[in-house]
Design a protein around this nucleic acid. Structure first.
Lengths: 336, 336
DNA sequence: TGAACAGCTTGACACGTTTCATTGCGGTGG
DNA sequence: CCACCGCAATGAAACGTGTCAAGCTGTTCA
């Protein structure tokens, strides 16, 4: 309401210099008790709230970092966001959360905006290649941590999971459960995470002479898409139908499960084994608990923030790439 | 990297006045083609990114709104966030997403921060009473829209669902399915949304003389809590066990389902009927599809942004309170 | 031919804060 | 009694941009 109230209005009302008010806000211990009280009273009375823009302009940097995810409604990314936020809060940082909605355009817009905001640094989860853009931004002065895929450039910090190993574990497990016709559902193949998981699954399949891996390429990785693919699979004759399905993430896997069991009357795991990836909370909570490759989401966020802090501090010195080891959580969906 | 580059460095390199560069950025049509090219080249060469702080300081307001949710990893809020973001993007606004993690402390910190940022307005989803704080902030010049609960004050815009009706629909449906001992699982009772749903359920129960409503009060509304409550319910002797459970949200409901069916070998709906609330995507996608009270999440975000825009424009004139009508989505979990 | 005019361009100032050199003041030690 | 010191407080400069009144150039109209 009322004409915008700034530090000088407060100073006038409290009968002190504006410099003193600024001190009160930023270094309260440097101000005498008497003036502290006067200033506090003036602030309350005027409803003063410091103008971040001016503050930031003057001091040159902001106590904010950004976390951009491709799809915040995927619990996998939401969980990471929570970890990021908690760690950042502990370090006195605020988090600018952004949802690129898998759109490259939106990604670019947000990246631009974060730079303009002069954030301390960026945490970026993305499908698709983004490293060169991050490199460019880093050269301009904003460090970043790539989340979810391992950086190729050694100067680029990243936090990721060994997706090749994850794919291997999943496929080997299916083979051990005596599945031979295995299908991988996921895509697009250009996404590094997807390619790595297929790579790992292929390795497991190669180890078993009579096992085969069919790749069913899909554009999106959602519940709805899982149902679609399930319908297609269910239509096949039993001998052409895969004995086991490895989905590139849990959303797809849960969609597949629903499609197979509810829409098409097949049984999991009796008719088809099913493995997911990410181990989101809903995987375990499913009525048919879903076997899934677990990445430690919670630690992801923490590690990413720490890495970013290091990058900010050491100024592009030893950029580290943390690679977590995935773990297979075996549950009902693959235990016949 | 390099010394921070501002509008004047660009101007120097392009051999124009800084005012012209500013024009180029904000009103490109006012600048001659020749200089436009020179300036663009200089910007590219220097890697100039405009300083948002300075810009915002000068123009006085920012093209940013904020959306704060209590729990971003609940798909209900994540979906709303997506709607908000898309609508905001269409209006040329950026969204500051924040996750208060159900902590009042964090809520306050974020609200303070948003004010300091001079955001256009706030979209606030919260459990617990927050209206007086919003009123205070509104008086200081930042409008807001309450999301998910209906505002009491007529000056406070809000977007919500008729929770009393939702509760009524859920309970009446259970009664129609010939359940008599009904349990409501949710809490805390101080949360308006929770209280309203109980209120509605009570009304339905009162309409049927031999129906009873037991309230099982829980502090959190998560999958894990649902499993806990399920264990407790399963332990009871069959005649003391509720015939139907109405959970205050889908997370709880899905946790209950898992707990009852997987952990304790009961059957849904054969042994116990189960209704949830919010109709998140996972409700329908469950292997036993969950009956749920549907609130139109997608429209929520859109409506909230529109309302906020109106509040910004008309300056506290006719604040509207939109109340959506809930719809019961009947699925397997209540059809014996 | 001169004046009015339109379209670009210019440079200075203002935005609200932080910072820094400086001043004022009371106390302490020589 | 003087010199010195530390602590508070002060006021002005600076951060990088947007805006605005004024200047400049070339064009149109009377």
């Amino acid at each position: 309401m009322a004409a915008r109230v700034g530090i000088r209005e407060v100073a006038a009302l409290a009968q002190v210099a504006q410099g003193t008010v600024s001190h009160f806000i930023n270094h309260p211990d440097k101000v005498s008790l008497e003036k502290r009280e006067r200033i506090q009273r003036a602030i309350d009375e005027l409803g003063f709230v410091r103008n971040d823009a001016a503050s930031q302009l003057r001091r040159g940097s902001s106590a904010t970092i950004a976390y951009m995810a491709p799809d915040i409604s995927n619990p996998f990314f939401a969980t990471i966001a929570e970890g990021v936020e908690q760690r950042a809060a502990a370090d006195g940082l605020s988090v600018f959360l952004a949802n690129s909605n898998r759109s490259r355009e939106r990604e670019d817009a947000y990246l631009e905006m974060f730079q303009a905001h002069r954030v301390r640094g960026l945490l970026v989860a993305s499908h698709g290649p983004i490293e060169d853009r991050l490199a460019h931004i880093r050269r301009l002065g904003t460090p970043s941590v790539l989340v979810g895929q391992r950086a190729l450039a050694s100067e680029q910090p990243s936090v990721s999971v060994d997706d090749e190993l994850g794919g291997y574990l999943a496929a080997r497990h299916l083979i051990e459960q005596s599945a031979r016709r295995i299908a991988f559902v996921g895509g697009p193949l250009g996404v590094p995470q997807v390619a790595d998981r297929i790579e790992g699954a292929s390795r497991a399949v190669r180890e078993c002479p009579d096992a085969t891996l069919e790749v069913i390429n899909v554009g999106t990785r959602t519940l709805a898409m899982g149902r679609e693919v399930a319908a297609e699979i269910a239509k096949r004759s039993p001998e052409r139908r895969p004995e086991a399905v490895f989905a590139v993430n849990d959303l797809l896997a849960l969609g597949l499960m629903h499609g197979l069991v509810v829409d098409n009357g097949l049984r999991v795991p009796a008719d088809i084994l099913l493995v997911g990836y990410d181990d989101i909370e809903f995987a375990e909570a499913s009525v048919i608990p879903l076997t899934s490759v677990r990445a430690p989401h919670e630690e992801f966020g923490v590690a990413a923030v720490d890495l970013l802090q290091a990058a900010v501090a050491k100024d592009a010195e030893s950029a580290k790439q943390i690679v977590f080891q995935p773990k297979l959580m075996v549950r009902t969906s693959t235990v016949a």
